[in-house]
Each structure stands twice: as structure tokens, then as C-alpha cells.
Design a protein around this nucleic acid. Sequence first.
DNA 1: TCCCCTTAGAGACGGTTCGTCTCTTACGAG
DNA 2: CTCGTAAGAGACGAACCGTCTCTAAGGGGA
Lengths: 186, 186
Amino acid sequence: MEQTQRRRGAELEAVLLDAAWDELLESGYAGLTMERVAARAHTGKQVLYRRWRNRAELVIAAMRYRAGSIVEDIPDTGSLRDDVLAVLQRMADRFASLGPDIVHGLLAEAPDLDPEVSSRMTGVMATIVRRAAARGEIPTADVPDRVLTAPTNLLRHEMLFTSEPVAASTLTSLVDDVFLPLVRAT
Amino acid sequence: MEQTQRRRGAELEAVLLDAAWDELLESGYAGLTMERVAARAHTGKQVLYRRWRNRAELVIAAMRYRAGSIVEDIPDTGSLRDDVLAVLQRMADRFASLGPDIVHGLLAEAPDLDPEVSSRMTGVMATIVRRAAARGEIPTADVPDRVLTAPTNLLRHEMLFTSEPVAASTLTSLVDDVFLPLVRAT
DNA sequence: TCCCCTTAGAGACGGTTCGTCTCTTACGAG
DNA sequence: CTCGTAAGAGACGAACCGTCTCTAAGGGGA
């Protein structure tokens, strides 16, 4: 019953991040404690603090580790509408698996979470729009950033402020009532 | 130097809420402690807990008390663009005076803050659009809710995710690149 | 092969805050 | 004048943070 092998380096780190992730799912951000993460990983708190300076950093690392490539592959269905819907759906799914508490908590303790997420999102949408323009689906790919990020930002806003999971009709409304009219109006 | 008069009822409550509000401005949400609020109000914690079950409830009460009528009077400048800008400016000002931490913290601990705010915002925007239509500035006031709330929601999103104060160009961009094109496209 | 140095694993510790409880005493209602 | 409600004050236990200390494992270098 003894822990004979002592974990090290990347192997240990993976265990720590897995433990943090599981705690996150089980207790949410507010309920996650360093003590419990350490216990779940069968180690001590110092091992955590040696790697991350505080709870927020640990949680961000865990999310990056597990969430991995949020938007590595950009949808390419051949339809602008379906591409955007796919992006939104992916965001909604990811959020549903985490719960709002995590994002709120992180936002509160980690002020500088945004820039990366935001700019990456802009890139994804820009690519989708560029392809649509190349297909001749829309007249031009020259769309303001504000418009490109509108649907994802609105969805994120919605997810933050409503406790319930996002309805499918919300996604289609974002695309049909907001995004597509805006792109066509350009 | 002695506190000879013992405060009661509404008088005491006002002192408590003022104290909470001051603490909020001084230390932010994360830094606000019940002990300090009580001390600032020259009373004990029990007086707070007798009225509000926890920190979140106290802070919400304090905000309602001080913030009061966020959107009681609806801008009516005679121009749709200026009306919407006025609403956004007002939101930005209010947020600037509070700081992001407060909203983050509240969101994290008080899940059900939204519905009231949201529906009231929709009403304000609907009125503004209705007036614009009556003036003949736009063809119809029949605009989807999703469009009505888009600018305020996008602004709120922006305020939540960026630490810095909102730039004036952000407000005009929201109106000129997003809202007005959407309304005209209807 | 052996030694040494990094660091895993474990837990104590001080500090802070929460929310509860207790106790005395002011003061308004009747 | 009396009596009950609630103010004012602070002790208290529980939880958690982040730091510190200590022992021993085990990989890398000689």
C-alpha cells in the first residue's frame, strides 16, 4: 500500500494538473483548495507552490493542460453560417463542462487572462470570414474586428451571466440576428 | 468621545450600507471584510449578519442603495446614435467608479444577479429605438432583442475582460460598427 | 559504483477571514 | 416602570492560504 515510486518532472506535473482538474470539476473554482489538490495527487502543498505561485495560476495551468487546443483546428464546413455556429457550439460545450463559477473566480483572481483568448478568437473568425469571401459567399473579408468578435463575445457574456446551459436557439440567434446581417451590411 | 446614542432601524441600516460602500471603494470586493465594515460603522459583525446572510448580500444591498437608479431616466437627445452612446457612456462611468474586481467578485458569489439588470436594459434600448422610429430616423422599431442588447452586452463583456478603463473609441465603435448597421439592416 | 544535491512527500505553523455564539446593556413599546 | 428586542462588543471554531522545516528518495556526475 506504500508509495514506493517517487514521481518527478513531467510525470509528476501531469498528476498534479489532473488532480487540479478533477477538483475543479468536482468542487468548482471557489471550492478548490490547494490542500485537497495536493492530497488527491498524493503529495504535499509545497510541490504545488514550487510550480505555481497561487491557486489562480494552478487552475489556469490545469485548464490549459486539459483544455489544450481550444481553437487549434478552425471549422471549415463550406458555409459561413455553419462555421460560425461550430465555433460557438464548441465554446458552449467547453463552458458547459466547466460551469460559470470557474470563469468568474478566475476572472476575479487573474486579471490578465483575456488578451490571449481574445486575439486568438479574432484570428479564428478572420480565417472563417476570409474563406467565405474566397468562396464568394460574401462580398469582402474586410470586416471590423469588433464585428468579428461580436458573436463569441456575446456568447461569452451570455454564459457568464446566466447559470443555465446555453440554448441552441441562442447560438442561431447570434449568428442569424447579429453576425450575418453585420457581415452582409459591410 | 463616547457613543452615547444607540442607532436603530433605518438609521442604523443606512450607516451600515454607507460603511460597506466606502469599504468597497477603498478595498474592492475581494478586500472587503465584514469585520472592517462593522468597525467602520462602529458596531459589531452580528449587526451585519442579522440583516444579510453573507458578504455578497451585503455588497449587493450596498450597491442597490448607493447606485440606486441606474437607468431611471432614458436619454432622449433626438438622435439614435447619441442616445445609445449616452447609455454606454453611463455604463462605462459607473463601472469605472467601481472597478472590475467588484463585478467579478459579485458574479462569482451571487449567481442570480443578472435577470433584473438584463431585462431593464432591454427596456431602455427598446424605448430609444421606438423613439427613433417615431422620428422617422429608422424604418421600424421592430428590432430583435438580441440586437437591442448587443451594444450593452458587448460593453459589459469588454469591461469584464479588460482591466483598463474603456476607451471612448470603443463606445463609438460599438455604436457605429455594430448597433447602427444592425438596426438599419432590419 | 558511489556520493551528493535537488526536490518529493509530509505536515506544522502563523495569519486571516468567515460565520456563529454569547453576554451585557440601551431603549422603545405598552 | 418594566420587559423584550436588538445593539454593541468580542470570543470562538473552522477553513484555508501561503510559508517553512524536515526527512529521505533517486538521478546525475565523478
